[in-house]
């Protein structure tokens, strides 16, 4: 198991999501999904159920996109790859019909994009303990941290929810006697968050400053955009997701600068370095996509599978290597207690 640092994995989450959302290159997305999948398998660990849950959710999300593509295809009869049965319940609304290349590629991109983002969250829950995420959310959001508790604890909550289902089966209660998966997940997340406690009591003055900072960071860019006062360089070269990522990073950095940050956030280990390096390479590959001539390959014409932003693809492959090379094996079996 390789235990990750919450800052490093927040970084990977932000940059990975930004890349996934802002590319329509199916090959790059496929490389990303495969790299994330390999990372999850190589990491293993006591929270692997988080990754397994994410795999299931990623598959479900992908299937939703496939379904949407088949139900609402785009294309004309002339360039249709496939003619699906169609049904029109009313004027202007048609389900099915000609399935064109644009539609197929769009559906594939949507499926891979959804899978990538979901897998990123699953990995974040697998590699970072709930305690790590809770500590980071406290240092950033302060008294507002409980709003993020379910998300912060979803990794460990997956493990508890799976264990609970196994116990239901072992004790022969029947799945109908137990709450659903999502309810189990939320209950487990609630209990994990409740049992966690900070080492230092919050200080009212610091909490007020933290709240004001957050308000400024979230409202500021929106107001600046609406008023048209953002620099042209920002509005032309940065995607919306880049801006959101920057706001999140600023919020975290400023939150860490305030007193009362849980000490867990400052605990670094040697195994964090390769993962941080992988995050840095991915960030640089994204930030320098223009100078590296990769911009066009990010959004190739539909059907062009030869264009590949090689820097981003290579950077994505570094992640499973970074996790795999620094992991320590932990035994899967614990001492058997009757």
């Amino acid at each position: 198991m390789t235990d990750g640092h919450p800052l490093v994995w927040l970084w990977l989450l932000l940059v990975g999501s930004t890349i996934s959302i802002n590319t329509t290159n199916p090959v790059l997305l496929l490389v990303l999904v495969v790299a994330l999948g390999a990372t999850g398998f190589m990491a293993g660990g006591p929270r692997r159920a988080s990754f397994v849950t994410a795999l299931g959710a990623a598959l479900a999300a992908a299937l939703v996109w496939v379904g949407l593509t088949l139900v609402l295809p785009r294309g004309s009869a002339a360039d249709a790859l496939l003619m699906l049965p169609s049904w029109s319940p009313g004027p202007g609304v048609t389900f099915g019909g000609p399935l064109g290349l644009t539609s197929v590629v769009g559906g594939l991109v949507g499926a891979l994009r959804a899978a990538a983002v979901v897998l990123l969250f699953g990995l974040a829950g697998q590699l970072v303990s709930a305690r790590g995420w809770l500590a980071l959310s406290r240092s950033t959001l302060g008294a507002g941290a409980p709003a993020l508790h379910p998300l912060a604890c979803v990794g460990e909550a997956s493990v508890e929810a799976l264990a609970s289902r196994q116990r239901v089966a072992q004790q022969r209660w029947g799945s109908g006697a137990a709450a659903g998966w999502l309810t189990s997940l939320l209950l487990a997340a609630r209990d994990i968050a409740r049992a966690d406690r900070p080492r230092v009591a919050p200080r009212p003055g610091v909490e007020i400053i933290r709240l004001l900072m957050l308000l400024l960071l979230t409202a500021g860019p929106v107001l600046a955009l609406a008023a048209g006062v953002l620099p042209t360089a920002v509005t032309t070269h940065l995607f919306g997701t880049d801006l959101i990522a920057l706001v999140v990073v600023l919020a975290v950095v400023l939150g860490l600068a305030l007193p009362g940050t849980p000490s867990l956030v400052w605990q670094w280990r040697a195994s964090d370095v390769p993962q941080a390096a992988a995050a840095l390479v991915l960030t640089l590959a994204w930030a320098l996509r223009g100078p590296l001539g990769q911009t066009a390959a990010l959004n190739p014409p539909p059907g062009d599978l030869t264009a590949l932003p090689w820097a981003l693809a290579g950077a994505a492959v570094l992640l499973p290597l970074a996790v795999g090379l620094t992991g320590q094996r932990t035994p899967r079996r614990v001492a058997a207690h009757a």
Binding site: A161, S164, R165, R167, V168, Q171, W173, G174, G176, A177, A178, A179, T183, S184, L187
Partner: peptide, 13 residues
């Protein structure tokens, strides 16, 4: 006992 069991359903089982 698994915490996610519903009391009534578990009793009936």
């Amino acid at each position: 006992l698994p915490g996610t069991l519903r009391i009534g359903a578990a009793a009936r089982t």
